[in-house]
Nucleic acid binder design. Structure first.
Length: 968
RNA sequence: GCCGACGUGGCGGAAUUGGUAGACGCGCUGGAUUCAAAAUCCAGUUUCUUCGGAAGUGUGGGUUCGAUUCCCACCGUCGGUACCA
């Protein structure tokens, strides 16, 4: 028996594959346990050392539960639709299905080599038509439902039609885009197109105009979470707001339930807070201000109705529909100029803006409580999508309003006396009302109630709840996603593709570019023209496939349903969900939405999809960045150029092909840093800086790899390099360097394969766990992996001794030896339950060291230790288990049972403290009484020495803890 | 700005309900083995010290017989979010 990690790894990985050791059946006789890893997107870069952290943790947990006798569902699959594969296809001409297949295979191999116990027979792929048939089916169901706020659940659209035919909109309490008023007769008089438009107002999946994040470079709409700092997360392209016709999911209908459900699940506080934030519930009041010379009032939403006497102007969003209507002729030019200015600004501009801007419409409205005449402005800082798109401005009590009032010379009326609350900010909502008529003297919370009540009494407003969350835009003008299963007839009325015709598969294409907002599928005319009408050419976003995948694993090959009822009734929900915090908001929220929808339909038995969520911490790694600057040439031309990290602004430069000039910086952010993968040829100069050599860049030009494609894109943003020369005369640019999280976009990924090969998979697994608490961020470092390797060797040597043969005795174990074993059982069992895997590894080390000291090689101790270490070191454990004559795989062997009798102590070592400071320790029998301990301790000569010349004021004895003398 | 998490040796990190701070591992120092090295094994390793001790868990206060743990204020790091009315 040799400790040959490579041979052991291969042998057992082969064995598990052949024997389908990790196959899971829907065996309802055992209790179920569902452990899920977040769906990976199979990128070209492969796994890095950050990924396995979560996979190993969930694998350990699954194996542990399996040994405890649970029927464990632990599946893996791939989120294989998405932008990167399509972008890669545009860059290289490789079809997304091909690159995805290659990447998926690579991920699977890497996961197999980590010894992860997935049941690969249950693997799913979102881009597989057999899978996305059901994605389309679920979205079809969403389309066929509306939200009844009275019943607080989704109901079929057929019932809505009936209601409209009988009562019109009377008595309808539905989640809707806008409030409609129709009689039954109105409804019946409508044509198909008009009826369809009315239903769209209520459908949970609907088509409508919305302001969207438009990314010109990617040629598609992006979700809020796909935009970071006004740029696209994929590719870092600028994003602008644009009004477009889009499919959306009415997530706002579920806002309240998504919020309430957080109370019932075991997620971290931080994550719950993030979700609450994203949903953004606020309770306030709707107030209606009459506009001079106009019937319809101006509606505003405010959380501070109490400050209504301090209102000195109103602000509406530039996109607000009233703007055109109320602007007076004298102010028309000013408003037009401002609208032009707003239209010219991207998201980045708007977000980085600190000064207030706006324009006066010339119109006035009337404060309903005191009749004051209030001017109406438009300004960028008021958002179209939140509340009513209009605010009542209270410059005395709101920072932005104040800056605006100061700039435009508007009166400021103090309405809150905060002198009782020094240091309180506006958000604290404290103080006493002044200058406010009947509210004077009230505290803020009371005044809010009183003012709201008054508005309501006057019919000028009412209490209202507002949510920050916006409906989820579910259209992408791209190829590589699920087609919306819709056909438009000659009246432009969309209808679902019948269920028996699903899936609507993607047509084969070889050119995936989206041209000016039109999906590439528009060009597939053979596909999109059908006898009954034209197909919808928008596809769904990546989240469509990933927000319900956990259900498909339960029943992955079912052709009659997304999951069979009896199967989902058995598996219920995910017990433990492990993944990165970067998906904390969007993915979790969207799958919670779909789950709740399916619950309403009676398709799933639980209200929440994920009972417990574990977010693994990031593993940090170096990020190298290349700098982009601007060369201003003597003839006034500006050229983007690549420069070293140390080139200062104003440096005179002469660049081949561009001429002489000097360096100016990017207006927005100085030199712009672009993360760059360390290509192999890049050489390390010292720890703080890296160099990229010209020879490396030239080589990339004809490289077909996916990394090279990214690299080329980056390089195309600058058109020349400002080279420096090293000692050997080679040209290079110095890159900047910092530690940061490991991610595809930062191109600082470290691959686990090498370590796994060198030290063995089990060592790599235990080392990753040993790094620290699973949920905390930490830098990657390989120092320390040797220690884990040495431990595994020592553990192995317990069984083989000095020779190459198994050397285990059948003698009865001593009390001391059994104590070591049971201490380990207790610690490891508790710590796995508590997801504290790093301390488990320590516990194994301690136990191994103790057993070595006891020179114990007894089966009674060692065999249970093999079963304990099996979740952590599955290969070595199976090898040892087989050598010991175990039947089958250790991974189906029972978890060792704890017997507390071995842990009972005869005596306890008490720390003896004086005024809380421990000075010595003394042993007392475990059963000794307080009185005996106190008397004996006082009598002990070492204690007496400390008590000399002092008065004992008090003695505290806590059995099995400590003794403390309070002296003076 | 707001929300959340976290601050412990040279480093990663341990410490049930408040009860011996620094487990375990890395690194380092010394030793054994070796012609030598690797590997392995043994001992030591918070700081200061007059070698009796003393101080010590980001900083300052508080509660307590006793605080890494609980409370208050502040500082710092990381993550999220940002004109949300």
């Amino acid at each position: 028996m040799k400790f040959d990690v490579t041979a052991i790894d291969q042998k057992w990985q082969q064995y598990w594959k052949e024997h389908k050791t990790y196959r899971t059946t829907n065996d309802t006789s055992k209790p179920k346990y569902y452990v899920l890893d977040m769906f990976p997107y199979p990128s070209g870069a492969g796994l890095h050392v950050g990924h396995p952290l979560g996979y190993i943790a969930s694998d350990i947990y699954s194996r542990f539960k399996r040994q405890q006798g649970f029927n464990v569902l632990h599946p893996m699959g791939f989120d294989s639709f998405g932008l990167p594969a399509e972008q890669y296809a545009i860059d290289t001409g490789v079809h997304p299905s091909e690159s995805t297949a290659v990447n998926t295979e690579r991920y699977k191999e890497q996961m197999l080599s980590l010894g992860l116990s997935f049941d690969w027979d249950r693997a799913v792929n979102t881009s597989d038509p057999k899978y996305y048939k059901w994605t389309q089916w679920i979205i079809s169901q969403v389309f066929e439902h509306w939200y009844d706020k009275t019943a607080d659940k989704a109901r079929p659209v057929s019932e809505l039609r009936e209601h409209l035919a009988q009562h019109g909109t009377a008595g309808l309490n539905a989640a809707q885009t806008e409030a409609l008023e129709l009689s039954a007769a109105d409804w019946k008089a409508m044509g198909p197109k008009e009826q369809s438009d009315v239903l769209m107002n209520y459908r949970l999946a609907f088509r409508g105009t919305s302001y969207v994040n438009w990314c010109e470079a990617l040629g598609t709409v992006l979700a809020n979470d796909e935009v970071k700092d006004g740029r696209s997360e994929r590719g870092n392209h600028p994003v602008v707001q644009k009004a477009m016709q889009q499919w959306s999911l009415r997530i706002t209908a579920y806002a309240e339930r998504l919020l309430a459900g957080l109370e019932t699940v075991d997620y971290s506080d931080g994550l719950k807070a993030q979700q609450r934030n994203w949903i953004g519930k606020s309770i306030g009041a709707l107030a209606r201000f009459d506009i001079e010379g106009r019937e319809e009032p101006l509606e505003v939403f405010t959380t501070r109705a109490d400050t209504i006497f301090g209102v000195t102007f109103m602000v509406i969003a530039p996109e607000h529909e009233l703007v055109a209507e109320i602007t007076t002729p004298e102010q028309q030019k000013e408003i037009d100029d401002y609208l032009t200015y707003v239209g010219s600004r991207s998201e980045v501009d708007r977000q980085s803006e600190t000064k207030v801007t706006g324009a006066f419409t010339g119109a006035y409205c009337i404060n309903p409580l005191n009749g004051a005449r209030v001017p109406i402005y438009i300004a960028e800082y008021v958002l179209k999508d939140y509340g009513t798109g209009a605010i009542m401005a209270v410059p005395s009590d709101d920072d932005r309003d104040k800056r605006f009032a100061e700039k435009f010379g508007i009166e400021i009326i103090d309405v809150i006396d905060k002198s009782d609350y020094p240091g309180a900010s506006l958000k604290d909502k404290v103080g006493k009302l002044i200058n406010s008529d009947f509210l004077n003297g009230m505290e803020v919370p009371d005044a809010i109630k009183a003012a709201t009540a008054k508005l309501s009494e006057m019919g000028r407003g009412e209490q209202q709840v507002n949510f920050r969350i916006r409906d989820l835009i579910f259209s992408r003008q791209r190829y590589w996603g699920e087609p919306w299963p819709m056909i438009y007839d000659e009246n432009d009325v969309p209808s679902l593709v019948p269920e028996d015709q699903l899936p609507v598969t993607l047509p084969p294409m070889d050119d995936f570019r989206a041209v000016s907002g039109v999906s590439p599928l528009e060009r597939a005319t053979d596909w999109n023209q059908t006898p009954t009408g034209r197909r919808e050419t928008d596809t769904m976003p990546a989240t469509a496939g990933s927000n319900w995948y956990y259900l498909r694993y339960m029943d992955p090959n079912n052709d009659d349903a997304f999951v069979a009822k009896d199967v989902v009734d058995y598996w219920q929900d995910v017990d433990l969900y492990v993944g990165g915090a970067e998906h904390a908001v969007s993915h979790i929220l969207y799958s919670r939405l779909i789950h709740k929808f399916l619950f309403d339909l009676g398709k799933v038995p639980t209200r929440e999809p994920y009972k417990k969520l574990l977010n693994q911490g990031m593993i940090g790694a170096p990020i190298t960045s290349i700098h982009l600057g601007i060369l201003l040439t003597e003839d006034g031309q500006r050229h983007p150029i690549w420069i070293g990290s140390s080139v200062a602004e104003g440096t005179p430069l002469e660049v081949e092909g561009l001429g002489k000039g000097h360096l100016v910086l990017d207006e927005s952010s100085g030199t712009r840093k672009v993360p760059l993968r360390m290509v192999e040829e890049t050489s390390v100069d010292n720890e703080a800086s890296f160099r990229i050599y010209k020879s490396a860049i030239d080589k990339v030009a004809d490289d077909k790899a996916q990394d090279a494609a990214y690299f080329r894109t980056v390089l195309q943003q600058g058109n020349a390099f400002v080279w420096e020369t090293d000692r050997e005369g080679k040209l290079f640019i110095e890159l900047s360097f910092q530690m940061g999280k490991m991610s595809k976009s930062k191109h600082n990924v470290i691959n686990p394969d090498d370590l796994s090969k060198r030290y063995g998979t089990d060592c790599f697994r235990m080392y990753e766990m040993f790094l620290g608490p699973i949920d905390q961020a930490k830098p990657w470092s390989v120092s320390g992996i040797d220690g884990v390797y040495r431990f595994l060797r020592r553990f192995w040597n317990l069984f083989v001794g000095n020779g190459d043969q198994l050397n285990v005795s059948d003698e009865e174990a001593t009390k001391e030896e059994m104590k070591v074993l049971h201490t380990l059982i207790k610690k490891v069992t508790a710590d796995i339950e508590g997801l504290s895997f790093n301390t488990c590894v320590s516990a194994f080390m301690v136990a191994t060291n103790d057993i070595i000291k006891l020179k114990c090689n007894k089966r009674a101790v060692l065999e249970p230790m093999v079963r304990l270490i099996a979740p952590f070191a599955p290969h070595v454990a199976d090898e040892l288990f087989a050598a010991l004559g175990g039947e089958g795989s250790v991974h189906h062997a029972a978890w060792p049972a704890l017997d507390e009798k071995w842990l009972v102590e005869d005596s306890f070592t008490y720390p003896i403290a004086f005024n809380g400071k421990t000075r010595l320790t003394l042993d007392f029998p475990a059963g000794a009484s307080k009185e005996d301990i106190e008397a004996e301790a006082k009598a002990h000569p070492d204690v007496a020495k400390h008590l000399e010349g002092k008065t004992i004021r008090k003695v505290i004895v806590v059995p099995k803890r400590m003794v403390n003398f309070v002296v003076g």
